[in-house]
Design a binder for these strands. Structure first.
Length: 490
DNA sequence: TCTGGGGTCCTAGGACCC
DNA sequence: TCTGGGGTCCTAGGACCC
């Protein structure tokens, strides 16, 4: 998908179409997740510090990510991909490899191109957003092709042209070559793919180590046999928080670690996992990062157990100079817990006992794994990390609903006020109104679908010029409450 | 107002075992 | 009283990816 998060926001918020939009962390230490193409003109790009983006592009719309929406769009696209082949390997919410051969596409450039173009049409029809397609004989080359295809395009790298095409490109083009590897290669006088190839495998292994050197050599030769793998097993689950200001108070650090442990376990359980190794991550004031881990005798999904392990690990860490980030993770995943094993063993013993006593052992009861958790607040709270009892936070970009004016989104808030723009994905650009932050008529909303359900017509992406949209009319906007069954209040 | 959050894979040393 | 060799597991750190 092209500039995925930003494009989704532009589709959802008509007033932002054609304008610079930057999605990412809005706090003092945030970074850019996605910049719209209009914002990239100013030099803003992914992973840039948000503070720098604001200097470069002060007039952009700065929005917090709405993962629920992105996940929904992503699911729709992934469903389309599965119609092409059973072999679909998602790389992230907005990118995936598809093995077309495994899906029965005739192995010709023409057939592949036709499938790719049809897919792009369908993506646009289903999501209202544009995606780009790269077609080639391997994952590496398909990825390079898709990057060249962006935005809103399709590129084929034809068999036989690979080495020639790769030769002059920067080593950074190759997967697995980041800043550190590029620097190591540069010191050896290697800048291009051709130079990498000419260095030879032995030299690359000497420079980069066994695995990395060997795989880089293959890539540089245009050889990439990695299969498309659907459904890889999760290996770890983790959560982390960067704090707006460094933490120095030890008690506060301990509290945050406990909270993170609970959140981590919440996600672990939601995924139906348990794990043996608990990892504590601490990033200090100077950005130096350390991890401490502890492996239990058996897998757990008990919040108390993880909390205690994390607290033990913290004991060995000096935090007096200030902590900027804390994280808790669980790895060594299993789909059962040690408690399950105990329960199973106990059940077996009981069954044996019962049999001896010539009773009927009750079967079936799979004993809900719930024993463990004096769980705190619902672990599922994904949208905004709310502290119980804290005042409502209106984050720019999030959905709201007003009892009188209907659906809208937070444009900004401060000094006790919140500014809302009332528009929906299928309205024209809407009007802005300001309220007190505690206005009872205002409540958090839910993301609306980007395309009007049962939609009459062209999606957002189709109307390129905002000029095409009807002139904003405040009454009409107000009326856009529309009979939609938008559900639920918190 | 420098540097998010969620992952994966690799390396290297030490413990431990056969 | 010299130190083998190979395997696995654990811990810590680092590179990389989106």
């Amino acid at each position: 998908m092209d500039a995925f998060f930003a494009a989704a926001e532009q589709a959802a918020k008509p007033s932002l179409r054609g304008k610079p939009v930057i999605v990412g962390g809005l706090g003092p230490r945030g970074v850019v997740a996605t910049a719209s193409y209009e914002a990239r003109v100013f030099g803003v790009h992914s992973a840039m510090a948000m503070a720098q983006a604001r200097r470069l592009c002060p007039n952009a719309a700065y929005l917090t990510p709405r993962f629920t929406l992105y996940r929904r769009v992503s699911d729709a696209v992934m469903t389309l991909l599965h119609t092409l082949s059973p072999l679909v390997e998602p790389l992230s919410l907005d990118e995936a490899f598809v093995d077309l051969e495994a899906g029965g596409t005739e192995p010709s450039v023409g057939a592949a191109r036709a499938v790719g173009e049809r897919l792009r049409t369908e993506i646009r029809a289903v999501t209202g957003l544009t995606g780009s397609v790269g077609l080639a004989g391997s994952k590496m080359l398909a990825k390079i092709a898709s990057e060249r295809a962006k935005p809103d395009g399709l590129v084929v790298i034809e068999p036989g042209t690979e080495r020639e095409l790769l030769a002059p490109l920067s080593v950074r083009t190759l997967p697995g070559v980041g800043p550190a590897t590029a620097e190591a290669l540069r010191r050896a006088g290697i800048h291009t793919v051709l130079e990498t190839r000419e260095a030879g495998e032995a030299e690359l292994v000497r420079l980069l180590g066994r695995a990395h050197g060997a795989s880089l050599y293959l890539m540089a030769c245009g050889r990439d046999e990695r299969p498309v793998v659907a459904e890889r097993d999760t290996k770890s689950v983790s959560v982390e928080d960067t704090f707006d200001v460094d933490l120095t108070d030890r008690t506060r650090v301990q509290l945050e670690v406990a909270r993170l442990a609970d959140r981590c376990v919440g996600r672990l359980r939601a995924a139906g996992h348990s794990g043996r190794t608990i990892v504590l991550k601490v990033r200090r004031y100077d950005f130096s990062t350390m991890t401490r881990s502890e492996t239990l005798r058996g897998p757990t999904d008990d919040p108390a157990v993880v909390r205690e392990a994390a607290a033990r690990l913290l004991e060995g860490v000096d935090t007096t100079a200030g902590v900027r980030l804390l994280g808790v993770g669980v790895s060594g995943l299993a789909d059962f817990t040690q408690e399950d094993l105990f329960a199973q063993a106990a059940q077996a013993a009981q069954a044996a006992e019962a049999a001896r006593a010539a009773h009927e052992a009750p079967e079936g009861g799979e004993a809900a794994p719930g024993g463990g958790g004096p769980e705190g607040p619902g672990a599922g709270a994904e949208g905004a990390a709310e502290h119980p009892g804290a005042p409502r936070r209106w984050l720019p970009g999030t959905d709201v609903r007003h009892s009188e004016f209907g659906e809208g989104w937070v444009q900004g808030s401060g000094v006790g006020r919140v500014t809302v723009r009332f528009e929906t994905p299928w309205s024209g650009p809407g009007r802005v109104r300001t309220f007190a932050v505690d206005d009872p008529a205002l409540e958090p909303g839910e993301p609306l679908p980007l395309l009007e359900p049962g939609g009459a017509g062209a999606g957002p992406a189709a109307s390129d010029g905002p000029g095409a949209a009807a002139a904003p009319d405040s009454d009409r906007v107000q009326g856009s409450g529309r009979g939609q069954p938008v559900t639920s209040s918190p």
